[in-house]
Amino acid sequence: MTKVAIVTGASSGIGRASAIALSKAGWSIVLFARRIDDLNETKSLCIDSEKVHVVQGNVTDEEDVAKLFQTTINHFGRLDVLFNNAGISARAIPIEEMPLSQFQNIVNVNLIGNFLCTREAIKIFKSQTPQGGRIINNGSISAYTPRPHSAPYTATKHAVLGMTKSTLLDGRNFNITCTQIDIGNAQTDMAGSHSGGALQPNGQVVPEHMMDVTHVGEAVAYIADLPLGVTVLTFNIMATRMPFVGRG
């Protein structure tokens, strides 16, 4: 039986790399994001486009999320893995200069979107036969150690860690498990500016080492293929020479 995965934020970056890696591993995949042209490009890069289905929508929209999961069941009949990947960050500015609207937008995408997708996945995991499934949350090294002037992003990633632990605990009796993958300096549109110079705690702007995002996609596919009796609670993958351990 072919396994089925949903990847949110699949139009670029980590989501695209993960979809490609899952496709190489033989998965059927539902790609979800706002940008339909970019979603179709991701689909074209997958090994078997017949096993890839595209759904356009926004993780912050309750109706869009419900449609995503219903479409997945209609198209493939079950769900085995949800990769909660969709997320945004903001430019580094002091918290006293940050508009409430910007803070709320990051919370809506990074945390509320995670909740909405997790809720719908759990419904399916509990009701399907065989019961169970795996959720992989895109955390960040910022779930543990912040960058300067990153309060909203850091707060949401700390919250995602709490969601990960709660999901794992509450799903235990239903063969549902949850992993948080914490990524540092993968070469994507979101993080790529760090290679040109990132603000450090001492006030300097220093270029940082990056890693190929392909390695992240392969890590997601590895975790997805583990049996449900095996849990990886947190999985850190980062560029070896980036500042994290001992940051600041």
Score class of each variant (00 low, 15 high):
Gly192Thr: 08
Ala25Asp: 11
Ile36Tyr: 00
Thr145Asn: 13
Ser195His: 04
Ile29Lys: 10
Glu97Ala: 11
Ile47Cys: 07
Asn138Arg: 04
Pro243Trp: 02
Thr129Val: 15
Asp64His: 12
Asn138Met: 14
Val55Gly: 10
Ala159Thr: 12
Gly203Val: 10
Ser49Trp: 02
Lys123Leu: 15
Gly197Ala: 06
Ile237Lys: 08
Tyr144Cys: 09
Val4Glu: 05
Leu228Cys: 10
Phe32His: 08
Glu63Ser: 14
Lys3Asn: 10
Glu97Thr: 06
Val7Tyr: 00
Arg34Pro: 15
Asp37Ser: 12
Ile181Met: 14
Thr60Tyr: 00
Asn202Ile: 08
Ile88Asn: 01
Asp170Tyr: 02
Pro201Thr: 09
Cys46Ser: 09
Thr231Leu: 01
Lys51Arg: 13
Gly57Thr: 00
Pro99Asp: 04
Lys123Asn: 13
Gln180Lys: 06
Arg241Gly: 08
Ser140Asn: 10
Ser44Glu: 04
Asn110Met: 08
Val220Asn: 03
Lys157Ala: 15
Asn185Asp: 10
Ala10Ser: 06
Gly229Cys: 07
Glu120Leu: 13
Arg247Ser: 05
Leu100Ser: 07
Thr129Asp: 13
Gly139Leu: 14
Asp48Phe: 06
Ile237Pro: 03
Thr179Asn: 07
Ile181Tyr: 03
Leu199Glu: 03
Ser23Gly: 15
Ala17Cys: 11
Asp182His: 06
Met1Tyr: 09
Arg16Val: 11
Arg78Phe: 05
Val109Asn: 03
Leu161Phe: 07
Tyr153Thr: 09
Ala221Asp: 07
Ile124Asn: 08
Ala66Glu: 11
Val81Leu: 13
Gly13Ser: 10
Val206Met: 14
Ala198Cys: 11
Arg247Met: 04
Thr118Cys: 14
Gln56Thr: 09
Phe244Leu: 01
Thr72Val: 04
Val213Gly: 10
Gly184Glu: 02
Glu218Tyr: 02
Ser18Leu: 12
Thr156Tyr: 05
Lys123Cys: 14
Thr156Glu: 08
Ala86Phe: 01
Asp61Phe: 07
Ala239His: 04
Val205Lys: 04
Thr188His: 01
Val65Gly: 04
Thr188Ala: 11
Ala224Gly: 11
